[in-house]
């Protein structure tokens, strides 16, 4: 029997045995500033230092989505925005990943299409709004196209980069083993580009979410968080606006957390980054 003692495996990752949340100093340090701001906010509104029209108290804000007539609309608005986000993102990310794969695997396509894509990418997303509204009107199609565009570029770019940065060493292995075209894609290019594709998806989700709210705000037909905030501003309801801001942040945070967890699981072969 062969002796393995000379080449023992590295000690299996010392997994920090899921420390409880109160035992994690990093978490506490991260919470310090938000908690301080919250306290300051509470104190300022309680003492009446700023007019309550401009800055509503935190406890009122918490109650807003449940007790206030205008505030309750936030749930419908959130639902509509998320549907829009998902629809626009699905279209944009699919197209983006497809284009990235094409550019990253075909020299000819890269030479033909690459420069155009790079040119279009330079256009600030907001600059598309007047064009889109002129082409597709103020309704949902304009917004969906806008959201799709905001998801398209990050996914296309990161997919392409992921393919381009696959080490030449691995490509040589593929040549030596004479992998077929299909095998190269499935066994080498796709998994090799996956970490970068995931980064693209995460960035795209965030920009698509900002795109969702932005397009709703700028093309004010229908409901949605953006429209909800625009309405609040028009009626001088700063509490409604503030609620919109908080929802915006929470959704962004949730996107990041979910992406982080899901992608880490899917990329388990990378091992611990330490």
């Amino acid at each position: 029997m062969v002796d393995l003692s000379a080449s023992l495996p590295p000690r299996t990752r010392a997994r920090t045995s899921a420390a409880s949340w109160w035992e994690r100093p990093a978490l506490w340090r991260g919470l310090a500033i938000p908690v301080a701001l919250l306290i300051a906010w509470f104190v300022v509104t309680r003492l009446g230092l700023i007019s309550s029209h401009l800055l509503v108290s935190p406890e009122k804000l918490v109650a807003l989505p449940f007790v206030d007539e205008a505030g309750r609309h936030v749930w419908f608005a959130l639902g509509e925005s998320v549907v829009r986000l998902v629809a626009g993102f699905a279209i944009g990310a699919t197209a983006g990943i497809a284009l990235g794969l094409l550019l990253g695997t075909s020299q000819a396509a890269n030479r033909a299409i690459g420069p155009s894509v790079n040119g279009l990418r330079q256009i600030t997303l907001f600059a598309w709004i007047p064009l889109l509204t002129a082409w597709f009107g103020n309704g949902d199609s304009s917004k969906i196209v806008y959201i799709a565009l905001s998801a398209f570029f990050p996914t296309a770019l990161n997919t392409y980069e992921g393919l381009r940065t696959i080490p030449a060493h691995y490509l040589e292995v593929a040549r030596v083993l004479q992998l077929s075209w299909r095998q190269r894609i499935v066994r080498l290019l796709l998994p090799g580009a996956l970490p970068s594709i995931f980064i693209g998806i995460q960035i795209a989700l965030i920009t698509a979410w900002i795109g969702t709210v932005g397009s709703e705000y700028a093309m004010g037909v229908g409901r949605g968080i953006g429209t909800f905030m625009a309405g609040g501003r028009e009626q001088f309801r700063m509490d409604v606006v503030l609620l919109g801001v908080i929802i915006l942040a929470v959704v962004g945070y949730v996107i990041n957390v979910i992406c982080g967890r899901v992608f880490r699981r899917l990329l388990h072969w990378q091992g611990s980054p330490s």
């Binding site: 080449s7 495996p9 590295p10 299996t12 072969w269």
Partner: peptide, 11 residues
């Protein structure tokens, strides 16, 4: 079933 990152250089 091990992944490369779980192997030592020799393995």
């Amino acid at each position: 079933k091990a992944y490369p990152h779980q192997l030592s250089g020799g393995m």
